[in-house]
Design a protein around this nucleic acid. Structure first.
Lengths: 263, 263
DNA sequence: CTGTATCATTCCGCTTAGCGGAACGGTGGG
DNA sequence: CCCACCGTTCCGCTAAGCGGAATGATACAG
């Protein structure tokens, strides 16, 4: 029975065990499940999804919430990520340096497209430019590193929000209505659907006059959006005919960053 | 040797096992260790700190980094929190609702002090107002919910940064120099030391003219700062004689929030 | 108010996952 | 060159913890 099940250990399906212990893998999987699935989760649901016994899941949840990584909503029953998870996220920001990680990719994309390339990350409920590589040309776009921008407009934002849960989108539509009361929710949803299908977002004359931008998102291994990169410049250099080819380069670069993160 | 170590399982010290399984507790502890200790960590160091065998730690690290919760810096050897930790942090923000959690405490503090109370959270490398309860008086302070503020100035910011690692403080001093080239690093360090000792921060006529604020931080169970609350209003109602009593109320409220989070 | 179907939680004996001590290769400093 | 410390790997023993089933709580339908 223990014959070859020992080291190999794949029940033939989803999560290929790697290196460590099965117990630890399970704990990680539970955490990642929370970080994937939007709302609150209960014992049975998790047990079903991960194909584990309810007893096991229950014990893991006990441990995790005893350490504050999970919390139980008001009464009791179902769990959500807890304050310690927020603390961890904050720490991760200071430990893991996106800028250095993405720099080579961004620089190469800049040299390739000869347009300014930017790096944005998702932060709480907004977006922020972390870095940029400026175009070598005299007329170019320059963004403000560090300031935060709303998630509802601009290519870099749309590339992110298209892959976030419903709640973010509702919030964005609400914010959008304040400046453009006549915008329709369906139109925005359709726009984001296009972004999801193409894998990139575009904007022309949107945030700034005469500015154009093509942006693509990158993800962590669990499939969460972490941010986006863009190639942007004066609109007269972004003609419709080239857009597709240009976008392909941006998407490829974004995927490269995702891969670096997944490594 | 294994005599009574079996079930009871407390080596008489730090982390009292609760509910779940020992294995899961260990995994959580490793994660929390990363979220506490600033830099990168190696197998031996963790094993020593947590009083675990090196083999165990090594296996846990394998599992966690196979899921992207940890990452190994460039070559190899020591680990830091990975992209999945950032994704988790982001998700935690949307699941765990600080505003509703803190609302009763903030409202009570407002009714008690008759001044506007605010809720701020740490985000990436800045701070953001999440909520406020306005003073019932005609002359009052009102802050801008949602916008982000630098970490280097204002009571609410200082209450946070005083409990962050060195790197943040250096960054703040650098930013501070841009507006006040003559500020001395030692002075700022001393200021923060005072904040740490008192448990609260004050500002008078600092961010806005005629405005005063008393702020205290709150923490997750692991001791990470998550944000701060403040009681603030027109400076003429904040006379020095009352400051200490006023601050005590703010600190008590902040501790209450920490407790709610630790529950 | 009773029946049925969820849910989370608890129990306990069996067994297998994984603990830990020790051995191994690599690296750096004295 | 050696010693100290690192991360990694091996393997036999054993107790940690898995899982099936029982229990209690809650909820909805009839």
């Amino acid at each position: 029975m223990t014959l070859k099940n020992a080291a190999g250990k794949n029940t033939a399906d989803q999560p290929p065990t790697t290196g460590g212990t099965e117990a630890a893998d399970r704990v990680a999987d539970v955490l990642l499940l929370f970080s994937r699935s939007g709302g609150a989760l209960g014992v049975s649901e998790i047990a079903r999804t991960l194909e584990l016994s309810k007893a096991v899941v229950h014990r893991i949840l006990q441990s995790l919430s005893s350490r504050g990584l999970l919390t139980t909503m008001d009464a009791s029953a179902s769990y959500v990520l807890g304050p310690a998870a927020i603390g961890m996220g904050n720490k991760a920001w200071s430990q893991l340096d996106f800028r250095t990680l993405a720099a080579p990719v961004l620089r190469r994309l800049r040299d390739d497209t000869r347009e300014t390339t930017t790096l944005s990350v998702l932060t709480n409920h907004s977006r922020m430019y972390l870095d940029q590589f400026e175009s070598p040309q005299e007329i170019k776009m320059v963004v403000d590193i560090g300031a935060s921008h709303p998630l509802h407009s601009g290519a870099s934002s749309r590339a992110i929000i298209a892959f976030l849960p419903e709640a973010y989108i509702d919030e964005a539509v609400a914010a959008l209505r304040k400046s453009k009361p006549d915008c329709r929710e369906e139109d925005y949803a359709a726009l984001l659907e296009t972004v999801r299908r193409n894998g990139y977002a575009t904007s022309f004359n949107e945030r700034g006059i005469g500015a154009a931008s093509i942006a693509a998102p990158f993800f962590d291994r669990a499939g969460n959006v972490l941010g986006s990169i863009s190639s942007c410049g004066p609109i007269f250099r972004f003609n419709a005919a080239d857009t597709e080819g240009h976008a392909a380069k941006v998407v490829a670069a974004a995927r490269e960053i995702s891969d670096l993160l997944a490594r």
